[in-house]
């Protein structure tokens, strides 16, 4: 049985020990915090990728993405064909006073037009200024870091796997073709090696 009161002494010891250790306070304005990759600071818009599909605006639980666009038509590629139409972005704004940083918009964008940026120092004195318009959202793009490297044992990303498969297929095809050619003209090949030996 432990000594009566030993728990009390233990409590005192714990606090005293903590006092002698270095404190863990992050001294934020003096030293910048070391943010983990994928920090959710602000949302950046890569405007060039956006097709104004409106998926992000519709999925946003807060309805804080505002998109305006208009349709433009371009003349048909071949005479007599149908006119091409495409959406042109007029306004893209995110109200960060409403945004809850759930990241749904970024997940849902099928064209990789939205990104997380770790930048977080955009407090304003007027709440209206928290609605970031298109230019500002585009500017945040410059602060988006390169995607972090994969974990060592991670599965290969789909697109890379697909590209690799395609490349392997091509290579195999090319090799098979070369093989076939070699068998069709064996003399050439031997002459080539013979020259090399001489």
């Amino acid at each position: 049985m432990p000594l009566p009161g030993s728990g009390l002494a233990k409590g005192l010891a714990v606090t005293l020990r903590t006092m002698t250790r270095k404190s863990v306070t992050a001294r934020y304005p003096d030293t910048q915090p070391e943010l983990p990759p994928r920090s959710r600071g602000v949302i950046a818009l890569f405007e060039e990728n956006c097709t104004v599909c409106m998926l992000c605006a519709r999925e946003c639980p807060d309805w804080c993405i505002y998109i305006d666009s208009h349709k433009e038509t371009s003349p048909p590629a071949a005479p007599g064909g149908r006119e091409r139409s495409r959406n042109v972005l007029d306004r893209f704004a995110i109200d960060f006073a409403l945004c809850m940083y759930c990241g749904i918009c970024i997940e849902v964008c099928p064209f990789d037009a939205l990104f997380w940026s770790p930048e977080f120092e955009y407090a304003e004195t007027d709440i209206l200024d928290l609605t970031h318009e298109r230019d500002k959202l585009r500017d945040w793009m410059w602060t988006v870091p390169a995607p972090p490297p994969l974990d060592p044992a991670a599965e290969e990303p789909k697109e890379i796997a697909a590209a690799r498969k395609a490349a392997e297929k091509q290579a195999a095809q090319a090799q098979a073709q070369a093989e076939a050619e070699k068998q069709a003209r064996p003399g050439d090949a031997e002459g080539g090696t013979g020259e090399g030996e001489a």
């Binding site: 903590t18 006092m19 250790r21 404190s23 863990v24 001294r27």
Partner: peptide, 13 residues
């Protein structure tokens, strides 16, 4: 200060 350091903080700085 003491309370802060006993809790692993810095206290007023």
């Amino acid at each position: 200060k003491v309370m802060a350091h006993m809790q692993g903080r810095l206290g007023p700085m």
